[in-house]
Design a protein around this nucleic acid. Structure first.
Lengths: 148, 148
DNA sequence: ATAGTTAGTTAGCAAAGCTAATAATATCGA
DNA sequence: TCGATATTATTAGCTTTGCTAACTAACTAT
């Protein structure tokens, strides 16, 4: 503990910086959405389906931290574009089994790559130390986000 | 999926993680907006006014990475709520001088604190090392966001 | 059997982003 | 100087994404 930057104010300042950085990062990346044909929320939901496997609308909504009606519409749009399928659950006929199609998987890859391209290239240009900082920060934030 | 990713895949994976973390973080924080009476975009714009001083609509829009009409509306709302003022520039009568009011400054503090409260407390609970990682990540991301 | 719960949808609203078009003012070049 | 071009901001109108409330269908438990 060499550097004594006030402990409490420190946490607040860090939260502010992370907050501001997240806002500006997403605004920046959103600009490429038009080209990909897959908006941020749809891309994100599809990503959950691809990497997390088929699941119910409720679970998908929870994973995306969004209400059921919002996810219901997103899924309907994904389905309309042939990127996801809805099938009734065998055991519980109320529930849906929502899955990504092959087309969805392919478009996801392309869209995400495009969306993340600028950021990826910026990260590539960083030195190993800074890159490591970002990787660890990503892990920490993911954990905090899960927490609640 | 590779486990020991090389340099290139590394950058991509880091970009993905940071991206996902930012999305989920903002969704999480947005939930407290209703209570504060100051939405994310308004809070952010007001913040620029408070910490960056009075400025034109064009500059404010640029700082927030948003188009002029969008910022025009946000400022009109802030003005309607008595949180900011618009005055014609002395030298250039086309331009506006947009400034935060005392009420705006006060509300900003309260709103931002509330919005960031959960995150601040999470950061407080982190160890010094992880806290340092987040602080440095915030700095790095701010730099990358500025870049482009 | 029926009362209550849970999963999903529909309808309707608000916020925040965009583009295109317009008004008012500045600036520049012939 | 004055007319053409730039710039600054606004208005109108559209889209996307979020929400709540109210509904149907299906499951669970008493």
């Amino acid at each position: 503990m060499k550097r004594s930057a006030g402990r409490a104010g420190d946490a607040h300042a860090i939260a502010e910086r992370i907050h501001a950085a997240a806002i500006r990062l997403l605004r920046r990346l959103r600009k490429t959405d038009a080209a990909s044909g897959l908006s941020g929320p749809k891309s994100s939901a599809l990503s959950v389906l691809v990497f997390g496997g088929p699941q119910t609308l409720k679970d998908l909504a929870a994973a995306e931290q969004v209400r059921a009606p919002t996810m219901s519409r997103l899924v309907a749009e994904l389905e309309g574009e042939g990127l996801a399928t809805k099938t009734a659950d065998k055991d519980d006929k109320r529930a849906l089994r929502i899955a990504a199609t092959a087309k969805g998987r392919a478009l996801l890859e392309a869209g995400r790559d495009r969306r993340l391209d600028v950021l990826t290239r910026q990260v590539e240009r960083l030195g190993g130390t800074e890159r490591k900082v970002l990787r660890r920060a990503g892990e920490i934030l993911a954990r905090l986000n899960k927490e609640g």
